[in-house]
């Protein structure tokens, strides 16, 4: 049960983009069309899950036993960067169709701070591997959800007459603010669920 609540909390309550501000760059950059947003969302889910497992292993098997905690940032970012590169090569060979769908997004993911953010978060919060994986998948789905919903809104906005002063990035920001406001409605849901299932 604990895992289900954690999963729901990661998607809705503490949405990675709208309430924790991780991964804003792709959120603003790749959200003009629903189709590209879906592709990006899937690519991030894929990379985030694998990256969390790999960085978790590095932290527990290499950094912790040898007291090298201070190398965390540098090793995590290099691992994520090479992981993304490797995934790109493997996907190209093994599954060209998947590569066709995700390929263009992969290089963008290295600088997506939600991957590094979640990897460090899992260590900081002292999760077990299973908790970490659930948290990573939940967070990634939350990212994909926010991205797709936002893209759908932006597609609609193409048809609207926007006041001249806020055209461009300004209206995008304000829309994101309203979406974030909507997601605030989920706050406290995880504590409520916890209470319900505990009794």
């Amino acid at each position: 049960m604990e895992y289900v609540i954690m999963f729901i909390a990661a998607i809705f309550v503490n949405n990675v983009v709208l309430s924790r501000f991780l991964g804003i760059c792709p959120f603003l950059g790749v959200s003009k069309k629903v189709s590209t947003a879906t592709g990006m969302g899937m690519a991030v889910t894929f990379v985030l899950t694998i990256a969390t497992i790999v960085t978790f292993a590095i932290q527990k098997c290499l950094l912790d036993p040898y007291g090298l905690g201070y190398l965390q940032t540098i090793s995590f970012i290099l691992v994520i960067a090479s992981l993304v590169q490797m995934l790109e090569i493997i996907l190209k060979k093994v599954s060209p169709s998947l590569y066709g769908a995700l390929g263009v997004f992969l290089p963008l993911i290295t600088t997506n701070c939600c991957v590094l953010g979640v990897a460090i978060d899992v260590i900081m919060k002292d999760y077990t591997l299973l908790q970490g994986i659930v948290y990573a998948i939940g967070t990634a789905i939350g990212f994909a959800l926010a991205l797709i919903v936002f893209a759908a809104i932006r597609e609609q906005m193409e048809l609207v007459n926007i006041p001249k002063g806020v055209r461009g990035v300004a209206i995008v920001m304000i829309t994101a603010g309203l979406l974030s406001l909507a997601f605030m409605g989920f706050s406290g849901v995880d504590n409520g669920l916890n209470a319900v299932f505990a009794n």
Binding site: M173, I174, M184
Partner: peptide, 22 residues
């Protein structure tokens, strides 16, 4: 309080960018 909460960040930045553009 809204301005300190996450939505306030997006909205304030939106208007700030509009002002800077102007």
């Amino acid at each position: 309080l809204l301005f300190i909460l996450p939505p306030g960040a997006f909205i304030t930045l939106g208007f700030l960018i509009a002002a800077v553009n102007k």
